[in-house]
Design a binder for these strands. Structure first.
Length: 279
DNA sequence: CAAAATACCTGCATGC
DNA sequence: TGCATGCAGGTATTTT
């Protein structure tokens, strides 16, 4: 379920457990996830100390002492399991071993995840980062910046916000939640949003992401290690997955029949027809 | 160039 | 119970 807040939470959990420790080995149980894992991955990683972490969009970068960074993406179904059992779980394709005896498993049933290597000093030039849009939580991501990025765009704002070149880290859930908070109908053509609306939208994006990260952080603070692993915490979604239910501001029937679900570009969109008027 | 369709893969809920 | 179907939170790539 990983969008930006979940990826951030997973990264922080890994940081607490692993930073400063050396990787004694890595077990690769198959040569590929979504793509081939570099042939020299084990050789490059084994024996190196983990010196830092960073998140870019939905990617996690694990910086090693040899100027290499592991690039990790969780895909749709990926999760990280700390202190995984010696007998690997179903779909635990990769396990990192640390010198202090910990095991960190990468479980990914659908194998949409990925694992790669990039020189730490060249992270920004990594093929999947060079065209990536701004980090939504950076101060540089403003209403004016988004407004400029949406200029001339003729697709609906919902699908446009899923484009990682416009802004990085948003997925289906948080796009729905942000549009709801900003009071913008998902079918609104992206290029027609007014500066005032993009300003509201940017604030809504920052708010919803920050709240979700805070919720993840609180679950991390005293996390035990259930088989569920990291990054799976309770969400307080206001419209996502709530078809037919009242949104928090819903006056109820007959004024509003609750959250509606539609399909855009083959994916589900949830919105409140009362708070998010078409125009 | 932008936008839409396609591809990758397994698990699960649903309906017959 | 078994089986077919559709859907799931991602994104690079291909096609239009």
């Amino acid at each position: 379920m990983p969008e930006l807040p979940e990826v951030e939470t997973v990264m922080r959990g890994m940081q607490i457990a692993l930073q400063g420790h050396a990787l004694s080995d890595v077990i690769l149980r198959r040569p590929d996830l979504r793509w081939q894992i570099p042939a020299d991955f084990r050789q490059s990683v084994a024996g190196q100390t983990i010196i830092g972490f960073r998140r870019r969009g939905k990617y996690i970068l694990i910086r090693l002492s040899n100027n290499l960074s592991i690039v990790l993406h969780l895909g749709m179904s990926g999760r990280i399991v700390l202190d995984s059992p010696i007998a690997p779980a179903l779909h635990e394709h990769v396990t990192f071993l640390t010198e202090d005896g910990r095991r960190c498993g990468f479980v990914d049933p659908r194998r949409f995840g990925m694992l790669d290597l990039v020189p730490t000093t060249h992270e920004e030039r990594y093929k999947f980062f060079s065209a990536m849009g701004p980090e939504p939580l950076e101060p540089a991501f403003t209403g004016a910046v988004l407004h400029a990025a949406l200029k001339g765009r003729k697709s609906p704002i919902k699908t446009t916000l899923l484009d990682q070149k416009i802004v990085s880290g948003l997925g289906n859930i948080y796009v729905c939640e942000a549009l709801y908070r900003a009071g913008i109908h998902p079918k609104t053509l992206a290029g027609t949003l007014k500066p005032q609306e993009t300003k509201r939208l940017v604030q809504a994006i920052k708010d919803v992401l920050n709240e979700a990260i805070a919720a993840g952080g609180s679950s991390l603070k005293d996390y035990v290690r259930p088989e569920g692993g990291l990054g799976y915490f309770q969400h307080a979604w206001r419209v996502y997955g709530r078809k037919g239910q009242p949104c928090p501001d819903c006056p109820g029937p007959p004024d509003c029949m609750g959250v509606e679900q539609i399909t855009q570009a083959g994916r589900s969109t949830f919105f409140c027809p009362l708070r998010q008027k078409i125009r």
